[in-house]
Design a protein around this nucleic acid. Structure first.
Length: 477
RNA sequence: CGGGGCGUAGCGCAGUUUGGUAGCGCGCAAGUUUUGGGUACUUGAGGCCCCCGGUUCGAAUCCGGGCGCCCCGACCA
């Protein structure tokens, strides 16, 4: 009897959620740096998937994002990010961050709400029109929800930097922005509220600004390539100033919003194979080479102007996922942002700005990577690397093997979503295809009789039967 | 901002023409069943029919006015 009571006590302590949380919190305190929880059991996850297509979603990425439980629309063009979608958003953000840092840019965080005064100084308060969401605070002071941050960063920068010796600098942040689009559409690809990385470079002269531009050029190519995207820089309009120092980065996707024309050799290039460092000597030839191949959007395309015959041009559709441009002293002059030069003269800052649509990329990646069954996440941005499917939940054998695999994958720091629900096989297979995790590890009684599990690669649909150990080894490799 | 469409259960829809107090499929819950690609059956819960006003004995349905959402175009990361 005493033993029974003791057992019961032990069990009740383990089942007490508070005890678990305290224990977790304690272990976190001891660790040097905070770590994110890698894996998840589907039976406990907030993942509201839909079997049918919501009518409001017309394009494929929007439909799949709603069906796979990534986002929830709260108003036209404004979305709440649910756990699975948020994980993807964070992974994309992190790749952007790492590449910005590698290029020498420094992360800051500016507010979403800005005072109108800054915009009145640059003259854009009136120019921006209704796209700008204007707000009054309780003191009737004019504020706005920032659509971009040139004015603010210039104001911040100039208030501290007074000498040419403090140049160059490149500051970026990843922040939510708002543009009150007349007609939001395409889900997160053309929302009103969107997450964006924008960087702002400050230089003494044009040569410096050009180098800053080239650094971003390289960082952008690397960023998109890491996300499994083929991004092509295309010359864009930069207004009166800037010459050719403006590029849009367009990824190719069948459902893209605009037609693009480019040299077929683009498809062979991979920026991750290039060994080029962030210095002028290496960047000059690199950028030269990467801008020499023809590429133009519909509106810029002029037949006969390419360096190869028109009929050999690759015609495709594209989605803009980034834009870099040099704009000189456009903001530094009206905002009076200058430094003292070597000879004591006042020199207005040479600036450029560089944007990446982080939330848009979630949709864009899906546009570029899906099939009839659902999303196909590139591994680098996948919410989980592995989907573990237990075909017979509740059976001792499959449960045990799955738990074991789940633990081992966790120990190997591989994030896994374990479908431990008591659902039929078909529901689990289809659900896993829909949310598009790169690898599906299927554990069923039939396979276990032969001591094998099935490993499926979502992208190709290829499956192979492997022993548990070799499946784990393959996932770790 | 021009043009068009739609708001009925969580999702997809019917019912509106001809006013009589709301229905189907999926999903959800319970049970049986099934167990390797959304299994089958039974039972059940779930609606301020977008909102406000008007007409009428009676309005999801007719009339007026709002609001919301979607699509095409112009605009944009």
């Amino acid at each position: 009897m005493a033993q029974v009571i003791r057992l019961f006590e032990v069990k009740s302590i383990c089942l007490n959620p508070r005890a678990t949380i305290d224990k977790l919190a304690f272990s976190r305190l001891k660790s040097v740096s905070p770590k994110r929880i890698l894996s998840m059991r589907l039976s406990q996850y907030f993942l509201p998937t839909l079997k049918e297509n919501p009518t409001e979603a017309q394009i494929v990425s929007h439909r799949l994002m709603l069906r796979a439980g990534l986002v929830r629309q709260t108003s036209a063009g404004i979305y709440a990010w649910l756990p699975l979608g948020f994980r993807v958003l964070k992974k994309i953000e992190q790749i952007v961050r790492e590449e910005q840092d590698a290029s020498g840019a420094q992360e800051v965080l500016m507010p979403t709400i800005q005072p109108a005064e800054l915009w009145q100084l640059s003259g854009r308060y009136d120019v921006y029109g209704k796209e700008m969401l204007r707000i009054k605070d309780r003191h009737e002071r004019d504020m706005l929800y920032g659509p971009t941050n040139e004015e603010m960063i210039t104001d911040i920068f100039k208030s501290f930097v007074k000498s040419y010796r403090d140049l160059p600098r490149n500051l970026y942040h990843i922040q939510w922005k708002f543009r009150d689009e007349v007609r939001p559409r395409f889900g997160v690809m053309r929302g009103r509220e969107f997450l964006m990385k924008d960087a702002y470079s400050f230089d003494l002269d044009f040569a410096g600004a050009k180098l800053a531009y080239q650094k971003m050029f390289l960082a952008y190519l690397r960023t998109y390539a890491r996300m499994g995207l083929k991004a092509i820089p295309m010359r864009a309009d930069s207004g009166a100033i800037g010459g050719d120092m403006s590029h849009e980065f367009i990824i190719l996707a069948d459902t893209g919003e605009s037609a693009v024309y480019c040299h077929p050799d683009w498809l062979k290039l991979d920026p991750l194979n290039e060994s080029v460092s962030y210095n002028q000597k290496e960047l000059d030839p690199f950028v030269e080479r990467w801008t020499s191949l023809y590429a133009a959007t519909d509106e810029k395309h002029k037949p006969g102007c390419a360096n190869i015959p028109d009929n050999q041009l690759l015609t495709a559709r594209g989605i803009e996922v980034g834009h870099i441009f040099y704009f000189g002293t456009k903001y530094s002059k009206p905002l009076n942002a200058f430094v003292t030069g070597p000879n004591g003269e006042q020199i207005f800052l040479e600036m450029g700005s560089y944007g990446i649509g982080v939330s848009r990329l979630v949709g864009a990646i899906i546009e570029a990577s899906h099939d009839d069954n659902g999303i196909i996440w590139p591994e680098s941005v996948a919410p989980f690397k592995v989907g573990l499917i237990n075909l017979k939940q509740g059976a001792a054998q499959t449960d045990k093997v799955c738990e074991d695999i789940y633990t081992k994958l966790n120990q190997a720091k591989i994030d896994v979503l374990y479908d431990d629900r008591s659902e039929s096989a078909g529901i689990k297979f289809n659900g896993m295809d829909l949310i598009g995790l790169p690898w599906h590890l299927v554990v069923g009684p039939r396979g276990l009789e032969k001591n094998v599990v099935e490993l499926k690669y979502r992208k190709t649909g290829e499956r192979q039967e492997l022993s548990i150990d070799s499946a784990l080894a393959k996932l770790a490799g």
